[in-house]
Design a protein around this nucleic acid. Structure first.
Lengths: 111, 111
DNA sequence: CCGAATCCTTTTTGATACTG
DNA sequence: CAGTATCAAAAAGGATTCGG
């Protein structure tokens, strides 16, 4: 087993990991992904906003960032013109179960 | 299956989950837990500081918070008097694999 | 060396107002 | 309604300092 803990320098992968974590860990970042995962379908802005209970500014910003990192797809809402829908990407679909297990852990441990 | 997404009110568990996530997602929060997990033994302040590459102020604050939430144990260092060691608690031991999988996901997806 | 207190800078958030 | 711009407040981070 690679006992990297004994190394003096930091595992270089951490830089990139931290970069993503900085995004995911901003307010409602993980939450938005989890909501989309559980919904298992596209959701509109207002739906998301209601579920995460945050200011529209925050939801808007977070969605932009998530989209930029390829974790959320923004697509035309089929039913409502002039509005968008948001969904997980292939990339974030594989992350969602991990987030889910984190929430589950929180539940069980009653934090 | 409980389709909570259709509910108007927010799942009440989210308040508590978010509270924990706010802690875990502060700078180096997850990182510290992962380092302790991989080390699989107590680590001193300086060891931790070096591995997460952050200011002592930040490491100190994070450790205090993690301890307060029962995610880190602070105990007397056996070899060096006047200094502490830090280790995972039973509680955080069960969380560590989840954090690990998040890091692994980041690695694979090259974020 | 270990780690916390102070103090200052940067980042993030959210209320409000605004546009299509 | 669906977002975005602006701006003020709050939160978080880090350099320095200081005491064991």
């Amino acid at each position: 087993m690679y006992d990297y803990i004994m190394e003096n320098d930091c595992d270089p992968i951490y830089g990139k990991v931290d970069e993503l974590l900085e995004l995911l860990t901003k307010s409602k970042g993980l939450h938005i992904l989890l909501i989309l995962h559980k919904a298992n379908r596209e959701l509109g802005f207002t739906d998301l906003k209601r579920h995460v209970e945050s200011a529209s500014t925050t939801v808007s910003r977070r969605l932009s960032e998530l989209e930029k990192y390829g974790l959320v797809d923004r697509c035309q809402n089929q039913t409502r013109p002039n509005s968008m829908s948001y969904a997980l990407t292939e990339k974030s679909k594989s992350l969602a179960p991990i987030i889910q297990s984190m929430y589950d852990w929180c539940k069980v441990n009653q934090c």
